[in-house]
Write a protein that binds this DNA or RNA. Sequence first.
DNA 1: ATGAAAGCGCTAACAT
DNA 2: ATGTTAGCGCTTTCAT
Lengths: 332, 332
Amino acid sequence: MKKKSIKDIAQDLELSKTTVSFVLNDKGDEKNISKKTQKKVLDYVKKVNYHPNQIAKSLKQGQTNTIGYLVPDISNPFFAKIGRLLEDHFWEKGYHLIIGSTDENKDKETQVLNMFVNRQVDALIVASCFIQSDTIKSLLSRDFPLVFFDREDPDVKANYILVENKISMKNAIEKTIYSGAKKLGLITLTPDIYSLKNRIEGYKMALKDNNIVFDSNLIRIVDNNDLKKTTERELRKLIESNVDTIVFTNNQITVIAIWLMNTYYKDKVNTIKFVSFDNVDLFDYSLPKVNSVAQPIKEVTEQISKMILQIIHSKKNENKRIELTPKLIERN
Amino acid sequence: MKKKSIKDIAQDLELSKTTVSFVLNDKGDEKNISKKTQKKVLDYVKKVNYHPNQIAKSLKQGQTNTIGYLVPDISNPFFAKIGRLLEDHFWEKGYHLIIGSTDENKDKETQVLNMFVNRQVDALIVASCFIQSDTIKSLLSRDFPLVFFDREDPDVKANYILVENKISMKNAIEKTIYSGAKKLGLITLTPDIYSLKNRIEGYKMALKDNNIVFDSNLIRIVDNNDLKKTTERELRKLIESNVDTIVFTNNQITVIAIWLMNTYYKDKVNTIKFVSFDNVDLFDYSLPKVNSVAQPIKEVTEQISKMILQIIHSKKNENKRIELTPKLIERN
DNA sequence: ATGAAAGCGCTAACAT
DNA sequence: ATGTTAGCGCTTTCAT
């Protein structure tokens, strides 16, 4: 059986599209459609298993009830968990998530972003690697409901839900220093990403405040396009430099490094300490021990959805920047 | 500046919508649009930052280039990873993923499914808890491009990408038996889920083939609506029964149980062995040691996308059932 | 209490 | 080489 449209329903029932539409949208009473007609429509619709075409509705109403969720990698537990919580929040409000992963690639990010815009998403939630892109600028200039999280560009005024990167990174590192760390290396993705830069600042500050000489050779940068290999290389360099602690600016690299340590440097897993931004379950059980900075995921998602819904409804964009306090999880 | 439509572009340029549309869809040459006009359109479009309305296009063409991905929980690493790989596969083909989590809840599943249908998704990829629902039946009856994975209902003829549940569960358990296991308990979500039932069959078969008496009290069922608490309760029961091995039918429960063991039964983490269906990174480092059955995620996603694309393009649905072989990861 | 008709933004068959 | 027009399925104003 071919899919029925509202027109078919109307014809079959010898009614007008208008009447059917009113009934289907719960406006039967309001529009003075007789109870009898209403029942007739409702029964028939159920019988033929009619489903309204949401695409047509969206076109007409200029609203899709869809929200784009753009992140570096949806399978990163941090982004997966936030995605799930957002999905739940927005489900209740009738919105649905469409996802895109960028792999920290500027071109891919722009493409996905354009795809989202073409699809007329009602809002965007973005952990971006490239906040200065034209697409984003154009979005911002027309006050599109857009919230950034996890990542920030201080030169771009926009809505941000962030955490205190610098201080919390510093605090986490200091715990390790207090328990004896003397030579600390750091591995990071490109510091072009402002949040990561801030985390690195936290590292520098921790050293400085504890009279440890800063050595730029101990800051190692890995390439997101070849994470495994470059992390292996940079980790080796640090180990050869005899660091006693390695700081990571996000969970992804830490997880790889844990694997590398257990595979190639088993003898060192008890002597070297890790400090990581972001927290994942794995850290509870793995060696080396990890002091980690856990972003308050629930709060983050609550703030994001609150902000998005507010912008959508009020049509007002205030470019708020909210900074939340992460939780330090001490394991060494 | 208000958003421009193709009509605006045409007016501004004193051309017809047709001409503009042809140029924008790369049909300029084919339709004999002069190079000059083509350039004019392309330049202008770039200048005013025009974005075609994909919703209108979808309505017209009866195709949304959207695929629904329905799983129990998108933040479960198993489903997150598959989601990511699917996203990549389909991105290349111009399709995008819209996600829905069901929490193993039949009502939620039906609602999300209906939402997907209303949104005119071109295909569905589903790890369902309720394959017999009316919505699914209706989808199947009209040969909608639909592929199930991870879960199966033997009474429903459809496309399935699965793994050998029974044999591989049995094999994994037998490894543990060979290394000394004598009393094995099992914790599972509701065996109403056919794949889980099969995994339980594998457990029974392993016992039988090794002359271990089956005791139905050692099969414990947890409630997905209250996973933490019920897993804690059932785990305690098994430990009080002095099992030396606990088998889990999916990763989610195993991860919780690992946490519980390390929190409440630290003294037993080296004596009790775990066996789990599905594999997650955590198992590489955690205690108790886990023999796990790793689904071949890459192969699964390749088969899913191959099948979906084939159905979409050929309009033919052959109800194929493909069973892949998982990999056994031995750790105890 | 119900219907006719316009229009959302796009495509494409059919003119010219 | 370019334009006219109908129509995708829906909502909603304005009639009746």
